[in-house]
Amino acid sequence: MKKLKRLSFNTKCKLCLLPSLAGTLLFFVIPYFRVLYYSVIDNQFRRNFVFLDNYIETVQNEYFLLALLNSLILIAVCVPVLIILALLISLFLSFGIRKLKALRASFVLPMVIPTAGIVLIWRTVFTDTSTPLPIYLLFIWKNIGICIVLLTAALTAADRSVYEAAKLDGAGSWTLHRKITLPMIAPTILFSVLLSIVNSFRIFKESYLFYGTNYPPDHSYTLQYFMNNNFLRLDYQSLATSAVLTSAVVFLIVLCGIFIQRRYNR
């Protein structure tokens, strides 16, 4: 016990983190390396090394490329819209109509309503499936709640005295938010962007229920469909390879985000 007391604060923190790290290692890191291993063998029973053959096959697969493209379009279109909408609502909640504060909790509702229930309404409203719009809207509706919560929390934590000082110096509303609000909540915005990107790869369940098939229209065929269909056909190698490639894409996006943030902070 005495020895424990003698430990530095940092060491104690690390010790506290150990259970969580062990869980991460057990349930994420080790399985990830296993998936990496499966992506370089011919099948999981015979286990002959084929090195990059599976990767070459996957990146040449037209449906993988279609799925990747659709996933990236979903990110490019929906994430900016989602963040801008969430930011506007958060600003309204924090600085605008104060009575709306009572409604703050209602924005979390889409996160707790069962997906099947939402999709049922969606199918009634959107009968035209010639565009991916229903899925895009579903994604935004489903994710806007968590973004609003995060951004509102960041705005609430902002130091109000800075705003008072800027107002005394004659700054208008636009200048206040551009010069003060945005820089102050930039890390939260970045986090929301990254979270939304990660969630965009998880829109499969909603999409599957909406279209009711493993083979949705080409415009809505995302990476999750590609992986799920290969899983059902017992093609673990395609599944593993596309999972690794997807994680690489996500990793690159996160790296870019961190890079931008660091540049911005300087």
């Binding site: 029973f45 015979r46 059902l232 017992l234 673990y236």
Partner: peptide, 12 residues
Amino acid sequence: LGVSDSIRDKGT
């Protein structure tokens, strides 16, 4: 069933 030939092709 579609999965039958997958068992054969994937060597499971």
